[in-house]
Design a protein around this nucleic acid. Structure first.
Lengths: 184, 184
DNA sequence: AGGCCTATTTATAAAAA
DNA sequence: TTTTTTATAAATAGGCC
C-alpha cells in the first residue's frame, strides 16, 4: 500500500518562501495560537490579549475577557509622560491642537483690542479726573490683570506652536489640546 | 523494568484545582505561547503583541517588533468617539480638564472685569461725545466681540463641567483637555 | 479561506532535581 | 522558581477537497 502522505515535515525557522504555503500556515498557526491562549485562560484563570497583523496587514485579535480591557490595563501600568503611550493621544489630538492654536490667535487679537479699549478708558479717566461729575468709579485692577492675561496667552501660544510635542506653560506640561471650534 | 514516569497525561479543560500545578502549568504554557507567537512572526512576517495577566495579576508581554507599536496601531484602527478606547485618554486627561475648568473660571472673571471696563468706556464716550477735544477715535467693534467671546467661554465652561465626558461646543467635540497651570 | 487525512514533529503533564 | 526526564497528548506540514 502506497503512503497517502509523508506526514508532518520539519520546516526551517525562517520566512516561508512559497507565498501560498505561507498564507495557509499563517492561518493554521494563528488559530493554534489563539487556541493555546484560550486554554491558558481556562486552565490558569489568566487574562490574555493578542493582536496579530497578518503579512497582508489585516488585523486579528483574541481577548479574554476582551482586548480593550487588557490593553487599557497594560497601558495604565506603563504610562509615563514621555512614554510612547502618549503617541496615540498625540495623534488623536494633533488636529485639535492646531484648532486651539488658531483660536488662541483669535483670542489674542480680541484681547489686544480690549487692551487698547482699556488704555483709552485709562487716558480718558486721567484726563477727565475730577472734572466730570458723571464719571463712575472704575476698578483700576482691570487693565493690570488684562496685561497679565495677555502675556500668559502669548506664552501659551508660543508653546502650543512648538513642534516637540512637549509644550509647557509656567513649568506645567500641556497634557492635551482642546478643540474649541468656535467662531468669534 | 519499572516505568520512570507515566508521561504526559490528558487533562480536563477546566481551571486546575491544585494551585502548585496551576503555577507550573501557567509558566510552561505561557512560554510555549510566546514561542508559538515568535515562530508565527518569523515564518509568516506577522506582527504580534501578547499581553498576559497571571492569576496573581502579574503582567507578561510579548511583542514583535514591540508591544506598544502594535497596540497603538490596533487602537488607531478601532478608535471611534464613543468607543472605550477613549476611556484611557479620559483617564489621562481628567486632572487636566479640571485644571482647565479652573482656568476658565479665572478667565471669565477677568473678561467680566474687561467687559465692565468696556462699558464704562462706552458710557464715557457717549456722555462726552463731541464735547472733549482730546477724545481719540475708538473702535466700536471691541465691545461687541468681547460679548461674543464671553458667551462662547461660558458655553465652553458649561460643557467642560459636564460629567458625561463628551463636552461639545458649537457642535464640535472637545477632544482633549488642556492643563494650563498658569496663575493669573 | 476553511475541513479532512496521515505521518511526524512538538509540546507538555507529572515527577524529580 | 526554572530545568530535566519520560511517555504521551497535541499540533501541524503537505496533500487534497
Amino acid at each position: 500500500m502506497t503512503r497517502k502522505s509523508r506526514g508532518r515535515q520539519k520546516i526551517e525557522m525562517t520566512r516561508m518562501s512559497k507565498e501560498s504555503n505561507l498564507l495557509v500556515t499563517f492561518s493554521k498557526r494563528r488559530s493554534g495560537l489563539f487556541k493555546k491562549a484560550s486554554e491558558l485562560c481556562t486552565l490558569c484563570s489568566a487574562e490574555i490579549a493578542i493582536i496579530v497583523f497578518s503579512p497582508g496587514k489585516k488585523v486579528f485579535s483574541f481577548g479574554h475577557p476582551c482586548v480593550e480591557s487588557i490593553v487599557n490595563r497594560y497601558l495604565m501600568k506603563n504610562s509615563t509622560p514621555s512614554s510612547s503611550t502618549l503617541q496615540l493621544m498625540e495623534a488623536h489630538r494633533n488636529a485639535s491642537v492646531r484648532e486651539l492654536n488658531m483660536q488662541l490667535t483669535n483670542m489674542l487679537s480680541q484681547l489686544e483690542a480690549e487692551k487698547q479699549c482699556g488704555e483709552e478708558l485709562s487716558k480718558i479717566r486721567k484726563a477727565s479726573q475730577g472734572t466730570c461729575w458723571w464719571e463712575a468709579p472704575i476698578n483700576e485692577i482691570g487693565l493690570q490683570e488684562l496685561e497679565q492675561l495677555k502675556a500668559a496667552m502669548e506664552e501659551l501660544k508660543k508653546n502650543v506652536a512648538n513642534e516637540d510635542g512637549e509644550a509647557h506653560w509656567g513649568g506645567v506640561k500641556l497634557f492635551a489640546g482642546c478643540s474649541w471650534g468656535v467662531e468669534f
